[in-house]
Design a protein around this nucleic acid. Structure first.
Lengths: 160, 160
DNA sequence: ACCGCATATCTTGACGTCAAGATAAATGGA
DNA sequence: TCCATTTATCTTGACGTCAAGATATGCGGT
């Protein structure tokens, strides 16, 4: 009888006509990801980064040397609007973690490049972040993790 | 090979020392819930409600007649800060869907009551919303839904 | 009866996000 | 070559959220 069960029980009493199976899954997903986001944010904040900033730095880092992508590339990898990406880059540039360099091939575009400080920040943060992710999923056995991943992959495939 | 697999492949190439199992689960969860939130928001918006507003109206509705709860009660059921709840109530009051009535038992407190229009709005929206949730999970068999729910319940229990 | 602490709600200021539109450069067909 | 269209990025204004603190009432021990 967790919090979501209590919500479903209320609905059953008030609106017995409603099928609550999907509600339960969606409700648990929502509450769960709210908790997870808070845990992740806290650890990244201890590294001096917001999760938004980390998201961009990590995308640049994993793209490989020379750690440069256009805003459009970043956009296509991160599920945010163009205005949000501009804002994220502005913040990171102000913090000295990335710089905008001219794109010689296309003057409409720029390249966002990790600075030395940006590379150092993300290299330091990513290890801590991954360890934190492992901590957050450690209540599952290897088999359960595989099962969950399979189900999430199938669910996600509905949308991507 | 979905989007998350591509991200994990990049990390494997750049940082083969990192174990990406937890990253995969967390990444899929995050992308999935972003998609789900957008789908849910869109349907509720067609009902004239934001998901924040619906959240409050639904909490009042499922609490049963006379559909009245204090802001503190609402707070304890909805994972938002007190300032956010005040703001949500303000919006709903402006829209005529709830009203603040004095709490005769405690003058520090007020009761948030569904108005006639608020009750009508949530009764209309909840059916459409639940149908939408069912649509969003319809790619799963009954067994898969049960399996997913079990795993999510266990995961959520880590935090609540 | 009083006073200090607890409780309940609201206020303030800062962020991150989005949708819609603005700006500027590239492209391709006539 | 030229211009209409497309592409790439940035700007603007509005929201929803939070943390921290303000305000007001209740409550319990002396």
């Amino acid at each position: 009888m967790d919090r979501v069960d209590k919500i479903l029980a209320q609905w059953s009493r008030e609106r017995p006509d409603l099928d609550t199976e999907a509600m339960g899954i969606m409700g648990r997903l929502k509450r769960l990801t709210t908790h997870l986001a808070r845990e992740v944010d806290q650890v990244l904040q201890e590294q001096g980064l917001s999760s938004s900033s980390f998201d961009v730095l990590a995308t640049l880092r994993r793209s490989g040397a020379p750690y440069r992508l256009s805003p459009g590339d970043l956009l296509s990898m991160t599920m945010v609007s163009s205005g949000t990406m501009t804002n994220r880059i502005d913040q990171l540039e102000k913090a000295g973690l990335v710089e905008r360099v001219l794109n010689p091939d296309d003057r409409r575009s720029v390249l966002i490049a990790l600075t030395k400080a940006g590379l150092a920040a993300v290299e330091s943060a990513v290890g801590v972040h991954v360890a934190n992710q492992q901590r957050l999923t450690k209540s599952f056995s290897a088999e359960e993790k595989a099962q969950l991943d399979t189900l999430l992959r199938k669910f996600l495939a509905t949308f991507e």
